[in-house]
Amino acid sequence: MKLREIAHSRTGDKGNISNISLIAYDMNDYEKLKQAVTAEKVKAYFSDIVKGDVVRYELPNIGALNFVMYSALGGGVTRTLAHDMHGKGLSAALMNMDI
């Protein structure tokens, strides 16, 4: 199953840091998200892009996980030569992750 089948995302970026939040469509799927989408798996999934740490924050009251990815935007969105390295592009890619 693809991650997008049980969750949607919101994103942001600041400098060279990308932030992706995953929000379960159904609160009953939150535990599945916690088990399936770890900081280690997100870092491995973006191994060609994310050069720093990935930190996961849990928000159980709203059924969400927030991933902060350091050194993830090729030096920063205004400095990189890469195409579409903003958070929105990365969140769309994450939604395609198999869980």
Score class of each variant (00 low, 15 high):
L94Y: 03
V68F: 10
S9F: 08
M97F: 06
P60L: 02
S21D: 05
Y57D: 13
A39F: 08
I62K: 11
G12W: 11
N96S: 12
D48V: 04
D53M: 09
L3K: 13
N66C: 09
M27L: 09
A64G: 10
S21I: 07
A93L: 11
I99A: 01
I62M: 10
E31I: 01
I99R: 08
L73G: 03
A44M: 05
Y45R: 09
A39V: 05
E58W: 04
E5Y: 03
D48H: 14
K41F: 00
D98W: 02
Y25Q: 07
A39G: 13
K32G: 01
K41V: 00
L59H: 11
L65F: 08
T38Y: 09
G15L: 11
V55E: 14
S9Q: 10
R56K: 15
A82N: 11
T11A: 12
H83W: 05
I23N: 02
G89R: 04
G89H: 06
S91I: 00
M97S: 05
V50Y: 07
Y45I: 02
R4I: 10
A72N: 05
T11K: 03
G74D: 06
K34Q: 14
H8W: 06
M27K: 08
A7F: 04
R10E: 02
K32M: 12
L81F: 02
A82E: 10
S9N: 06
D84F: 04
N66M: 10
I6V: 15
H83G: 01
I17D: 14
M69H: 13
E58S: 14
D13P: 04
